[in-house]
């Protein structure tokens, strides 16, 4: 069948401006996008740059956007994208620095961020000469996380990265999960401290886009939430977040529901004059509209004592 590949081009050795080349090629019905790209590079335009390695969906190297959607070109069938017209478009990911054509900067996109979470186990001192004795259930969860082939689709789907490219992103944070929850590692608290730095777990908006984008069902968002819950349990070290969470929890614990006015003030910190001043115009605007909740005059809900009990019990159990 004849299909036209419309491919994003950029040549750093020429003017470096983005453009597009169209190649019409004859490929078999069951051809993958990579089959087509390899044919183009070999027979039509040898300057075309794109990456590929494993050829069969194991490794993630060949991630491109095929007609808008992030896909591994080696397992994406061309016919899945040509129902309407015999053409497909190929582009690099949306939020990455492009080096040449479809080759983008994986270091900036993902590897450097993974490196930043100190992606290795610091093993505990072994109790014996043999292997660690661990139930398979604990290992199964880690195997699931490690089925990640670093394709970056979670980062491509992330809500935060388009507004802040320096956010560590779901791929790196999911990598961090694998160490924080490995019973063989020794420094969970230290690790969480790194993850709680700005651009880390607390910058995640837990929008679940990553879970929808992950082709392996690893559920990166849930991994990040698990890291946050663990931080909550062990004591949050990010001061701002700690204040916010403490206030939120205290408010629900004491009254059954949320005191938003109090939350806003306590999140900034009661002694943080500059932060509190910043709240003033917001409060003033809200007050003028008759909508600012009045802090600390927050009526208890009926049944609040029952909620408090749940808190006390939950807090007890996690100790």
């Amino acid at each position: 069948m004849e299909v036209t590949f419309k491919v994003y081009r950029k040549d750093p050795e020429k003017d470096g401006k983005p453009g597009r080349s169209n190649y019409t090629i004859d490929i078999p019905e069951d051809a993958t996008v990579l089959d087509g790209l390899l044919k183009i590079r070999d027979e039509i335009d040898s300057t075309l740059a794109f990456r590929a390695s494993c050829l069969r969906g194991y490794c993630g190297d060949c991630l491109v956007r095929v007609s808008g959607r992030a896909r591994l070109s080696c397992v994406a069938k061309v016919t899945a994208f040509t129902q309407k017209a015999p053409e497909i478009s190929l582009d690099p990911l949306r939020i990455v620095p492009v080096i040449k054509d479809l080759v983008f900067d994986w270091d900036a996109f993902m590897w450097n961020k993974i490196r930043a979470v100190q992606p290795w186990l610091e093993p505990k001192e072994p109790a014996s000469d043999g292997e660690n004795l661990i139930p398979d259930a604990a290992m199964k969860d880690l195997r699931k996380v490690m089925s990640c082939y670093y394709c970056g689709m979670c980062d491509e789907g992330c809500t935060v990265l388009p507004v802040d490219f320096n956010f560590l992103g779901p791929a790196a944070l999911t990598k961090a999960y694998r160490f924080a929850f490995d019973p063989r590692g020794k420094e969970t608290r230290e690790r969480l401290k790194i993850l709680e730095e700005p651009k880390g777990i607390w910058d995640c908006v837990h929008c679940y886009e990553a879970d929808e984008h992950c082709p392996r069902g690893i559920e990166p968002t849930k991994r990040i939430i698990a890291l946050r819950d663990l931080a909550f349990k062990l004591g949050i070290t990010n001061e701002k977040v700690a204040r916010h969470h403490k206030s939120f929890a205290a408010s629900v614990k004491e009254s059954g529901w949320l005191d938003e006015g109090r939350l806003a003030i306590e999140s900034e910190g009661l002694t943080n004059i500059k932060g509190l001043m910043k709240l003033l115009p917001i409060a003033a605007r809200a007050m003028a509209r008759g909508k600012a909740p009045i802090p600390y005059l927050h009526p208890k809900r009926p049944g609040a004592d029952k909620i408090k009990k749940i808190f006390e019990k939950g807090e007890q159990e996690t100790k």
Partner: peptide, 18 residues
Amino acid sequence: IIWLERMGVPFNRNGEGR
């Protein structure tokens, strides 16, 4: 193999955790 296990390979386990 034991070294790999210690360094974090989550090998499938048997009922004894080995």
